[in-house]
């Protein structure tokens, strides 16, 4: 009986050998918070923002205002497969900065969200 079960046990062990992978994706270079904090609404101009942060990812006209978006994102994906079950989790977090200008290209508002470092590898059942 034991001899008959050995091949089956070996086959099961091979078939159920788990596989996993981790992948990390990034978009754009990270944003320099020191350069961002050096910009002063009411004083800095579009040229100052361009010098500090480079070309924006997006430019939007908002009536007489305009807004520039800068972003950097990190995505982390973890997957685990065993036999017929596959678990996949992806977490994408972004650093975003929006610079708002008036009709004279003077910076009026500057807003940043920095979360890219918070992207994490985990399984779907983990919080």
């Amino acid at each position: 009986m034991t001899r008959r079960l050995l091949p089956l046990a070996a086959a099961l062990a091979l078939a159920t050998t788990p596989a996993c992978f981790l992948s990390r994706n990034q978009l754009n270079t990270s944003l320099d918070e020191a350069k961002i904090q050096a910009l002063a609404p009411g004083q800095s101009t579009a040229d100052d923002v361009l010098d500090a942060l480079g070309a924006p990812s997006d430019v939007v006209q908002l009536g007489r205002r305009s807004a520039w978006r800068y972003d950097h994102s990190t995505g982390k994906t973890a997957a685990f497969t065993i036999l017929i079950v596959t678990l996949v989790n992806s977490d994408v977090k972004t650093d975003r900065v929006w610079a708002f200008f008036d009709e004279n290209d003077v910076l009026t508002h500057l807003s940043g969200t920095f979360e890219a470092d918070e992207a994490s590898y985990k399984m779907p059942f983990q919080d």
Partner: peptide, 9 residues
């Protein structure tokens, strides 16, 4: 069988 979770922002 698959169980996937995708979070963005």
């Amino acid at each position: 069988l698959s169980w996937e979770r995708h979070d963005l922002h």
